[in-house]
Design a protein around this nucleic acid. Structure first.
Lengths: 280, 280
DNA sequence: GCTATCGATACCGGCCGGGTATCGCTGCCA
DNA sequence: TGGCAGCGATACCCGGCCGGTATCGATAGC
């Protein structure tokens, strides 16, 4: 299976439309059709079912789409890491607005290490693990279970409980503590976009970053479930109520497997040093 | 970067010889030289330094070799999983001779599940994680830290301590307990082959499986450090002495990230049920 | 300094990937 | 119900790339 075939298939599988996929790939539609047909023949399975009105994935196609995205990401990452190996620098991905204190401590401690290299920060609104998979970042601060750590090596840094973030005017804002059952069915619970930019089904409020979210909450249009770290940064008019039965959030430092970078290893070592993962 | 380029580069990087690599790839040497040169030009970095007598890896080349092996494995795995998605079956990789009881319990418990599929066993002499990376297996029983779980999703099943396996005639065989310092420098400590089939430097005994190892130990030619599971299977003439300060060995069940298989999920769920990971 | 070894270069032929033109099918609509 | 528009498949052509053979240039060993 060649990279080109995989790239073509992923495009068609995502668009579910040969014409649009060909457009995206900057080729004409006939060679695309032919390449997909060849791929199917070589694999010996149908990847797509086509009528002249509708294209859809087979089960095999769904598997190849998931694996193919990961492979294309790994290839992009390998290219970037190979290209930049002689310019030692480190790109650290982190969620904008989260873990400020931990991040500051980590960067300070690492900078003081002998042999430390320059650390570039890549602040993400969401899906902080994505840059790790496509090679834009070398290491990331993630939050399980919100962030997916599939296929990554991780080291736990910190465990903390979660809070319901509410406007002070909310009927539940006065409660000393809440349970998940109290909030999961509330219509104001905010939604985050999926990796492909689409939103999960439903009619709930769509937000893209913490600032938007806090504003929506202050306006009474949303509520959210978030870990303790955001608490110090809460604006006027918002309260955080402990959720006694919510799953714990673990802050982890994550890096790609097979990483051969001494800089990454150093940063990870420092990170596990500055923060001990006791339950918070 | 195309799969073909990566396959060619990995061959040359492993052989460190264009002629032998071309042989292995079943092509002539000139197109191979040209393809590698093109790859280097496109990436903008030198991957190999060649004199007319010797080929060696640059640092960038070492990075691409590591990432490239993983990518080629992922591609092979994706192909196999795509091909076999409509024939539900499960290949479980495990170390031959280890974890017999756990394995039997797991297979029995899974077979009793509703919707269980046929489980094929792939018994490995070593490097049990390899079949998971190249797609020959869907799930594996591994032992950290012996087995590498980089890039895999894992769930811990069991933790146990390690023992020094000695012939009864060995001077240390009578000790009630030992420390790592007592054994690490012994010249008889056995070596295991690397994933590429080569052996780490040194002049120690080379063994490929447990039977060979036990025979070598019985003959007084070797000793080994192993987890508790092997203890019931020890032949006459061998003793297991507790190593009080050796790292614990964790038995884990591992599967590839992005796995979409319901069968894998079911097996993992059963596995975590039959064995609770308390310290042993 | 001769020679064997090994990677690079030169050059050629066939195949394959990409292009345009067109066909065949299907759902929509008057 | 027939015309039409949208979409994927097919037919066919062209150029570039991949792989082949022949040969060169450099180097280490004798």
């Amino acid at each position: 299976m060649e990279t080109r075939e995989l790239r073509y298939f992923v495009a068609v599988a995502e668009e579910l439309h040969f014409g649009r996929a060909a457009d995206r790939l900057d080729i004409a539609q006939p060679p695309l059709s032919r390449t997909i047909a060849q791929l199917e023949q070589r694999l010996g399975v149908a990847l797509l079912t086509r009528t002249s009105r509708k294209v859809s994935l087979t089960e095999a196609g769904a598997v190849l789409l998931a694996e193919g995205r990961a492979i294309l990401g790994a290839i992009a990452a390998a290219e970037r890491r190979t290209r930049t190996v002689d310019r030692p620098s480190l790109v650290l991905a982190a969620k904008a607005g989260g873990s400020g204190e931990l991040l500051a401590k980590l960067l300070d401690a690492y900078a003081a290490e002998p042999g430390a290299v320059a650390v570039d920060l890549l602040l993400c609104e969401a899906h902080t693990w994505q840059p790790l998979l496509d090679g834009r970042a070398d290491v990331a601060i993630l939050h399980e279970p919100y962030d997916s750590t599939a296929g990554l090596d991780v080291e736990a840094l910190h465990v903390e409980s979660q809070f319901a973030i509410l406007p002070t005017s909310h009927p539940l804002a006065g409660a000393g503590q809440l349970r998940m059952a109290d909030v999961v069915d509330l219509p104001e619970l905010a939604r985050w976009p999926e990796p492909d930019g689409t939103y999960p089904d439903g009619t709930r409020v769509e937000v893209h970053n913490l600032t938007q979210l806090f504003q929506m909450i202050a306006l009474g249009r949303a509520i959210a479930v978030m870990p303790e770290v955001v608490r110090p940064g809460l604006p006027e008019g918002l309260v955080a109520v402990p959720l006694v039965d919510a799953s714990k959030v673990t802050t982890v430092i994550a890096w790609p497997p097979h990483s051969r970078s001494r800089a990454v290893a150093g940063l990870v070592r420092v990170a596990t040093g500055v923060s001990s993962p006791g339950p918070g």
